[in-house]
């Protein structure tokens, strides 16, 4: 699979349908941002997929992304430096894009 045959995405590269996602799609989207997915990335991606299944929303902002990760996985991973290193740029946006979730509403 390559960028050209991914399921429908919006103008910022977020999947239109979160349930059209697969691990392979995640790898393609990650590569667009020069990210090679490690187990550390997958842990956060699994968390986000599960979060979306339960709450039907993406964490709306970076702060709430960090807060939600902290609640679920603890202080060591629920901090902005850790998440910034894994998902550069705007971590909530980068991570949600790779995890197939909708665009976080309050990220610029």
């Amino acid at each position: 699979m390559t960028t050209s045959n991914l399921p429908a995405r919006n103008n910022e590269g977020f999947l239109e349908d979160a349930f059209a996602w697969s691990r392979e799609i995640a790898e393609v989207i990650a590569r667009e941002g020069d990210i090679e997915l490690s187990e550390k990335h997958w842990e956060i991606i699994r968390f986000l997929r599960e979060f979306y299944k339960q709450h039907e929303i993406s964490p709306p902002s970076n702060r709430l992304f960090v807060k939600a990760v902290r609640e679920a996985l603890g202080e060591e991973k629920g901090n902005s430096i850790y998440l910034m290193q894994l998902f550069p740029g705007t971590p909530a946006k980068t991570a949600c894009r790779i995890a197939g979730l909708p665009r976080p509403t309050n990220c610029l």
């Binding site: 979060f51 964490p59 709430l64 609640e71």
Partner: peptide
């Protein structure tokens, strides 16, 4: 539409 019931269940997580 998305479920407000499920959205609301995130409230305690977000503080």
């Amino acid at each position: 539409q998305k479920s407000v019931e499920k959205n609301l269940s995130a409230a305690p997580i977000f503080g």
